[in-house]
Design a protein around this nucleic acid. Structure first.
Lengths: 138, 138
DNA sequence: CTTGACCCTGAAGCTACTTCAGGCTTTTCA
DNA sequence: TGAAAAGCCTGAAGTAGCTTCAGGGTCAAG
């Protein structure tokens, strides 16, 4: 299977596949006489594994750790648990952050329901005011 | 006011301040005879404005747009409204995404309450299984 | 035999900074 | 007075996770 077919069958861009190879996330594939990469079903699985982890917001470094854990059948999966716990905490924190952000943006946006002139724009005035207040807090 | 004092009084790193200057987000400051940057209160305000916008998750490009709008007193603030509307939509979408992620991570984590051996680790088995299913969906 | 689809490499670009190397200027203290 | 320390300078490179680009080779079809 050439890189184009792998790309089509996984929905991953060709460049990204080559990038993962450079990053040692995908094993080096065989080559044809014409120097084309040749992939096996094992590559397909690994690539899907990577993308699924990425869809769970894991960094490539974290994916690397998971792959390593997976390939060490004797080890404990404590690492995997810890990684997930950390990730969940991160996501929770980020959600809280974004919720606060939603409130701030909504408040700001509520100041100017109709497009007006900039010199009297309540949003810009508020942005400036808030910036000054942030100063006071620091 | 030298760059160090500006940094201290705004909580922004010196390197970041110089970076904003390179990016034309901060006006070029005066210099002393020894070539040290000299800032005015106007710079302090502008820097705070930038950081406040950044805390609202705006990109530097968006901050640039806001600054431009602010400095064009005759314009309409339609741009500002549109920018905020777009930003709010983005944040809403991201929150939804992260909530789904939370569920997935919790489910995954629930598979292995006690650290076990990798070869029987339910999490890794599930990661592999899910990756295959994602394949089926594509 | 040439066109088009496919593949190759290495380098650079993206965001928003941070870090580093190497070298001035100014202040402080002995 | 002189030297160390603190502060500042520049330009370049590094960070994550790709994407894009330039310039070229390979292969099947017409």
């Amino acid at each position: 299977m050439q890189i184009g077919e792998l790309a089509r069958s996984t929905g991953v861009k060709i460049e990204t596949i080559r990038y993962y190879e450079r990053e040692h996330l995908l094993p080096v594939p065989q080559r044809t006489d014409g120097n084309y990469r040749l992939y096996s079903p094992r590559h397909v699985e690994q690539l899907r594994f990577i993308r699924y982890c990425r869809s769970l917001d894991m960094s490539l470094e974290e994916v690397r750790i998971l792959i390593e854990a997976r390939d060490a059948p004797a080890g404990s999966c404590r690492t995997v648990n810890a990684l997930l716990d950390e990730k969940m905490a991160e996501v929770d924190a980020r959600v809280d952050e974004l919720r606060q952000l939603q409130h701030q943006l909504r408040n700001l946006r509520g100041l100017c329901p109709q497009p007006d002139e900039v010199k009297t724009c309540a949003i810009l005035m508020e942005l400036n005011r808030s910036a000054r207040i942030v100063k006071a807090q620091i």
